[in-house]
């Protein structure tokens, strides 16, 4: 039974009982003098979830310099390293901020022996479009796929891609989403997923169930909070769904392919909800960082349990529920406002 891929990286495999647990944690927003509570939070989440694999869901850092990127990543992935847990990442909208581009950061990530990420095809938009196989217990066949897509920085990525003036207006005054100027995977990335999914089915002679990870939510996430009773809405929505108004058809592609069971996003620091549309679970993992705005009771991560026969269940785990007031950034002051604190804790 193979235990490593051609890069020498560990292969993902279902446990003997046919289960596999993913922990998704996002939005560390690490900077050169990052708050040391971040590493405590990651350690706490990993210790609680006992995952088989950890997905870093984007915005790992903001403005980290080349000289400290490796040490920063060493620190934030230490909980996985100590336990021998493989991990991977997608880039978020802040990850490409100066002074290091995503392309420059990627090899630093990939140099970690447990990092399974890859830059992805060079002729596809973005950095970090890849698919990780999760092997069945027998180690012979692929039982699940984990797709990762780059969701870029903002809508200007599209104006550049389309060869349009930079002041081209994409988010019109009246919009259908919550009206933010975020980007979304481009059409060539959607085609890459679509073709990969079709090829995998042809090769395996069956559909391979899959999860899809990206940083910025799809516009279809807006349907969750607008139709809570119809989609099985669970969780919190304390801010807009800051998705793109643009839509490259990724959700429809997933719907047609019928392999993606869940689409998971980070990006929002005050949303951790989940729901289901057309049979596909759409869910946030909120945030875990201490160097950006959030509410003290919202930090956390998402546990995604999959089974070898294609099953999926997921729940958000709040750091507050594991560690209580210890997770507050300032022990003397609850950040988030009484409105939420009282409602969520006492109702």
């Amino acid at each position: 039974m193979k235990t490593a891929d051609e890069r020498g990286k560990p292969l993902l495999r279902f446990r003997p009982d046919g289960s596999f647990r993913v922990l998704m944690i996002s939005d560390f927003h690490g900077k050169p003098d990052y708050n040391p509570k971040l590493t405590w939070a990651i350690e706490t989440m990993v210790a609680y979830a006992k995952p088989d694999f950890v997905m870093l869901g984007g915005d790992q850092l903001c403005g980290i310099t080349p000289d400290i990127l490796k040490s920063y990543l060493t620190d934030v992935t230490a909980p996985m390293t100590r336990r021998g847990i493989p991990w991977a990442h997608v880039f978020g909208n802040h990850d490409g901020e100066e002074p290091m581009s995503k392309a420059e950061q990627e090899p630093v990530y990939e140099a970690f022996p447990l990092c399974l990420s890859s830059a992805g095809p060079a002729d596809i938009s973005g950095v970090g479009n890849y698919c990780l196989p999760v092997y069945a217990r027998d180690g012979e066949h692929v039982a699940y796929h984990l797709y990762a897509l780059d969701s870029h920085t903002n809508v200007h990525d599209f104006t550049r891609k389309f060869g349009l003036p930079d002041d081209t207006v994409f988010v019109l005054p009246n919009h259908f989403s919550d009206g933010h100027d975020q980007a979304t995977p481009m059409f060539d990335q959607v085609m890459w997923y679509y073709n990969h999914s079709k090829s995998a089915e042809k090769e395996a002679e069956r559909k391979i169930p899959a999860l899809l990870f990206l940083h910025v939510p799809l516009v279809e996430f807006c349907l969750m909070y607008r139709n809570p009773e119809n989609v099985g809405f669970v969780g919190h929505k304390r801010e807009d769904v800051a998705c793109s108004e643009l839509n490259s058809g990724l959700f429809f592609a997933c719907l047609e392919r019928g392999d993606v069971k869940g689409i998971f996003a980070g990006h929002e620091h005050l949303c951790d909800f989940q729901g289901q549309y057309c049979g596909v679970t759409l869910a946030y993992d909120c945030c875990l960082g201490y160097d950006m705005s959030t509410h003290d009771d919202m930090r956390g991560g998402r546990i995604i349990d999959i089974t070898e026969d294609g099953g999926l269940s997921t729940r958000q785990v709040r750091l507050w529920d594991i560690a209580g007031e210890k997770c507050m950034r300032n022990p003397d002051f609850f950040e988030g406002g009484d409105k939420y604190y009282i409602r969520d804790l006492h109702t």
């Binding site: 839509n247 058809g249 990724l250 959700f251 429809f252």
Partner: peptide, 12 residues
């Protein structure tokens, strides 16, 4: 109802 991506594909 569900965006099939044709406009974005055309633009791209």
């Amino acid at each position: 109802t569900v965006n099939g991506g044709i406009a974005m594909a055309a633009a791209e």
